[in-house]
Computed example of a mutant assay.
Amino acid sequence: MGTALTVGDELFTRSFTVDRALLVRYAGASGDFNPIHYNERVAREVGLDGVIAHGMATMGLAAAAVTDWAGDPGAVVDYGVRFTRPVVVPDPGEVGLDVTGRVGAVDDDAGTVRVDLTVAVAGTSVLAKAQAVVRLR
Rank of each mutant, 00 (worst) to 15 (best):
T84E: 10
D72K: 01
T124E: 15
V106S: 07
A75N: 12
T124W: 09
V51R: 06
D68F: 06
A65Q: 02
D91T: 11
V89Y: 08
T84W: 01
A62P: 07
T67F: 09
E94G: 03
D107T: 10
T124S: 15
V115I: 11
V119K: 01
R82F: 10
D78R: 04
G111T: 13
R102V: 12
A62Q: 00
V77G: 05
V115G: 01
V88W: 05
D72N: 07
P73D: 10
R102Y: 12
V87H: 01
D107M: 08
G80K: 08
A64V: 13
F83S: 06
A62F: 02
G55Y: 05
I52H: 01
D98Y: 01
G60A: 12
V87P: 01
T84R: 14
V87M: 04
R82H: 14
A75R: 07
G71W: 08
D98V: 14
I52K: 01
A120Y: 07
E94S: 14
A63E: 11
A122K: 12
T112I: 12
P92F: 13
R102M: 09
Y79I: 08
V121W: 01
A57F: 09
D108S: 13
A70R: 00
V106I: 11
V77L: 12
V106H: 02
T58K: 04
L117G: 00
P90S: 04
V76M: 15
D109A: 15
D68K: 05
R82L: 10
G74V: 09
P86T: 15
R82C: 08
A64Q: 14
W69R: 04
G50S: 11
A53G: 07
P86R: 13
A120P: 03
V88P: 02
A110W: 05
W69Q: 02
D72I: 06
A120L: 08
A110M: 10
E94P: 02
D107K: 11
A65P: 02
T67N: 01
V115F: 00
A75F: 06
T84A: 15
V103S: 03
V113C: 09
A62K: 00
V106K: 06
M59A: 14
V81R: 00
V51A: 04
T118N: 09
V77H: 11
A53E: 03
V88G: 00
L61E: 03
D108A: 15
D68S: 13
A57Q: 11
A120G: 05
D98A: 12
R114G: 02
R82P: 12
T58H: 02
G93E: 06
L117Y: 02
V81L: 08
V103L: 07
G93K: 10
D116K: 07
A57L: 15
I52C: 05
G101H: 04
T112W: 08
D91I: 02
V89C: 01
R85A: 09
A57I: 05
G80Q: 08
P86S: 14
A57N: 06
G96V: 13
